[in-house]
C-alpha cells in the first residue's frame, strides 16, 4: 500500500515524515521548493509513505491523482490519498509560514515544538482519507 500525503505546502512532507518516524531534517534540502514530492520511507505497517506538495486546489490534486491511477489501471486498493489538515493553532501557524515563503522560520518553530513535546510534536496534524 502507498500512502500519499498532499498539501499546498511542505506540511505534507512533515505529516509523511512523522508517519514514518523519520527525521524532519530529511525535508531540509527541499523546504524552499513550492512544489515537490518526497518519499518519506515506510511506516510501521510496511506501507510506502509519500508526500506531495503543490500550490493548487487540494481537491484538484486529489482528483488528478485518482484520474492518473484510473488511467493506468492502478487499483484503489493499492494507494490512499490523505489530505493533510492542520488541526490546531501551532500547525496552522507552521502551514501559514510555509505558505508565506518563510520555511526556515516554519522549520525552526517545528523543531521547537518537537523539543518541547518529544512524544508527538504535531498533535494537530491529521491526514484525512
Amino acid at each position: 500500500m502507498k500512502l500519499i500525503y498532499i498539501h499546498r505546502t511542505p506540511l505534507a512532507a512533515i505529516a509523511a515524515l512523522s508517519k514514518t518516524k523519520n527525521s524532519i531534517s530529511l525535508l531540509e534540502p527541499y523546504i524552499y521548493r513550492r512544489e515537490h514530492f518526497l518519499k518519506a520511507g515506510n511506516d510501521a505497517e510496511g506501507n510506502e509513505v509519500y508526500a506531495l506538495w503543490l500550490n493548487t486546489d487540494m481537491l484538484l490534486t486529489r482528483r488528478l491523482i485518482m484520474s492518473y491511477c484510473e488511467l493506468h489501471n492502478i487499483s484503489d486498493d493499492t494507494y490512499i490519498v490523505k489530505d493533510v489538515r492542520p488541526g490546531n493553532f501551532r500547525t496552522k501557524l507552521i502551514a501559514f509560514l510555509f505558505y508565506l515563503g518563510l520555511p526556515r522560520i516554519a522549520l525552526a518553530l517545528l523543531k521547537l515544538c518537537a523539543n518541547r513535546n518529544l512524544a508527538d510534536p504535531l498533535p494537530g496534524l491529521t491526514g484525512i482519507d
Partner: peptide, 28 residues
C-alpha cells in the same frame, strides 16, 4: 486522446503525473 479541466493551474497535471509515474513506476 483525453481531455482534462484543471482550473488555472496550468502546470499541475504534468508535474503531478511525472511524480506519480515515479511513485507507481509507470514507464508509459
Amino acid at each position: 486522446v483525453f481531455i482534462l479541466g484543471r482550473k488555472g493551474y496550468c502546470t499541475a497535471p504534468s508535474k503531478i503525473f511525472n511524480w506519480l509515474a515515479e511513485i507507481f513506476g509507470v514507464k508509459e
